[in-house]
Structure formats: structure tokens, C-alpha cells
Amino acid sequence: MLALAVPAATAEAAPADPVPTVFFGDSYTANFGIAPVNDMDKPRGWCFQATENYPAVATRNLADRGITLDVQADVSCGGALADNFWQEQQLPFGAGTVPAQRDALKQDTQLVVGGMGGNTLGFTSILKQCSDKLRGDSGVLLPGGAVDPDKPAGECKEFFASGDGKEWLDWKFQQVEVHLEDMLMMMSYFSSGAERVLVGYPRLVPEDTTKCLTPAPGQTEPPFVDIPEDALPVLDQVQKRLDDVMKKAAADDGADFVDLYDHTGTNTACDGADRGIGGLLENSTLDLFGQPIPWYAHPNEKGRDLQAERVTATIETVLNR
């Protein structure tokens, strides 16, 4: 794991008692792609929640700093939409459902941590709009389809710049804003004394997109496979806009925000040996029925540790102030 450059909490500042905590979120909190997976013998195994996800790593990091979290639940689940915070989530391939994530909140919960919004935005549909490979069998595990499958993947930059594509994107961002606002308000309602920490998403595409044309060490395909290079800045702009929306939602509701986007610019999917994001079709450490599952641009172990580092620092600050 990465060495964390986080100052140790003093004995005087650290909370004296374990802090009742709930983690929530989507695949970036569950850390899809990292094996082994919790509850694989139950329907909830289809959440692909890593046993060693960033909530687990951050909890250990905090314990090393004299802060003990009493984790009441980690209900993060791959594919979760923001409205799955208050509505049950349908699992893939008819595996059943999992309860609304807010059901884990208790009146004595003092800390709520996690992130959602990318699936509400439809980021996988954006990826599929720009990739023929993801529109086919390679993207079968990714929820949703291309925004407009009649438009060629190679024209996705133009599609999102104007007309129906731009209107769709603006509408999805409006959804994200409203759902994040509702989610944060519900946290305060169900756990009125809780500190709330909204965690953003790590950066996927670097400023220098030419780095994305070279396969990572040991790989044969570029990190974003057949997505045109001129569309990569579009993905980055969408990510930055989502980061800004999440940051504003947290600020407007008095919650704290972990800005991963601004701290992972040298660990994108295109940063070779330093990448903290697995390439779209790069094999992760998971397999399904004996077949390897791609990372689909999720944090690898290095990326997970970067998430945990920032989350650890933010929780420490929140609980010691």
C-alpha cells in the first residue's frame, strides 16, 4: 500500500469513543475490480464490493492514528444510482435487489461517508456512445447503452458538443444536482447528528491525452481502447463538471467533500506504471465464472490506496475539529 503522508492525530484531539459510521456509494466506493469480494455466496455479491475497498483501508489507517470507527455498515454497491440511496437497487442478471442504502443509517450514526452520482449521470452510456467495443460484448457488464446508438462512436465528440447530445448531458447533470441534494438532506434526517463526507471520483483522463495512445506496461491495447483521442477531453470535461457539481452540493448542504479529481492527475488510466485507474478492457483481479472481468476504468489497488489516503485525511480533520 502507499505510505500515507497524513499527520497522526494527537491523543487529545482523537475521539475518545468509537465513531458509529456508515459507508455508502457505488462501484468506486465498493472498489469494483479488486478481489476478493464480500458476500459472493449471496445476491449482494453482485455488488462486487471488495473486501479491501477504500472504506476498509481508511478505517485501518484511522485506527493507526488513534481514531476508531465503529462501522455499522458498508452498503456500497456497484451500479448504484444516487436515488438508490432511498430506493432499493436492482442487481444485474436477475440476481435480486438490495435495500435502499439509507436503511443502514441509525439515529446514533455519527459519520456517513461515500460517493454516488456517476451512474445517475450515465457515465457508462457516455463511454458506450464513444466506443464500438463497449457497445458490444465487451461492455455487457456496464449498465445502460449508448445515448444514441444510431450515431457512430467515432462522432461522439460532435454529438456531445451540440444538439441532442448536449441537451441529454445538461438534463442528466440537472438530475445529479437534485438527487445529491435529496441524498444529503436524507442523511441529516435519518442521522441528525452525523458528519457527512461526500467523496468525489478520481481523474480518469490526463491533461496530455497523447499519453492515452500507448498501452500500459504488460497491456496490448490503449487504456481507452477504441475511444477516439479527440473524445478523451470530452470525458475529462464531463468528469470535471461532475466534480464541480458534487463539490457545490456538499458545500450548499454543509457537508464535507473529498476532491479526488484534483489530486489524481498523475495517476490516471494513461499514466503507465503509475496508473491508479485500470484501463477499460484491462483485466482486473476479479473473474466471473472463470473469465477475467475488465477494470472498466475503476481504481486499481494503487488508486484504491489514493482514495483511502484522501478519505483518511478528511475524516481525521472532520472528527478532530
Rank of each mutant, 00 (worst) to 15 (best):
E52S: 13
E52I: 02
E52G: 05
E52H: 07
E52M: 12
N53A: 13
N53I: 13
N53G: 13
N53W: 13
N53S: 14
Y54Q: 09
Y54H: 14
Y54G: 07
P55W: 06
P55S: 07
P55Y: 07
P55C: 06
P55E: 08
P55M: 08
A56S: 14
A56R: 10
A56Q: 13
A56P: 05
A56H: 09
V57P: 04
V57F: 05
A58P: 09
A58K: 05
A58M: 14
T59Y: 08
R60P: 02
R60L: 12
R60M: 08
N61A: 15
N61M: 09
N61P: 00
L62E: 07
L62K: 04
L62G: 06
A63P: 02
A63T: 10
A63M: 04
D64Y: 03
D64W: 04
D64A: 15
D64G: 13
D64L: 14
D64S: 14
R65Y: 05
R65L: 12
G66Y: 11
G66P: 12
G66L: 11
G66V: 11
I67C: 02
I67A: 02
I67K: 00
T68C: 04
T68S: 13
T68G: 05
T68H: 10
T68F: 03
L69H: 03
L69Q: 03
L69T: 05
D70I: 03
D70V: 02
V71P: 07
V71S: 07
V71L: 08
V71N: 08
Q72P: 01
Q72T: 13
Q72W: 00
A73P: 05
A73R: 04
A73N: 08
A73K: 04
D74M: 01
D74K: 00
D74F: 02
D74H: 02
D74G: 03
V75R: 08
V75P: 10
V75H: 10
V75C: 11
V75M: 10
V75T: 15
V75D: 12
S76C: 09
S76Q: 09
S76W: 08
S76H: 08
C77P: 01
C77R: 00
C77S: 00
C77G: 00
C77Y: 00
C77L: 00
G78I: 11
G78Q: 11
G78E: 11
G78T: 14
G79T: 11
G79F: 10
G79S: 11
A80L: 02
A80S: 15
A80M: 03
L81V: 06
L81R: 15
L81T: 10
L81A: 12
A82Q: 04
A82S: 15
A82I: 12
A82N: 08
A82D: 11
D83T: 12
D83C: 01
D83N: 15
D83R: 14
D83H: 14
N84F: 03
N84Y: 04
N84Q: 07
N84K: 02
N84S: 03
F85S: 02
F85V: 06
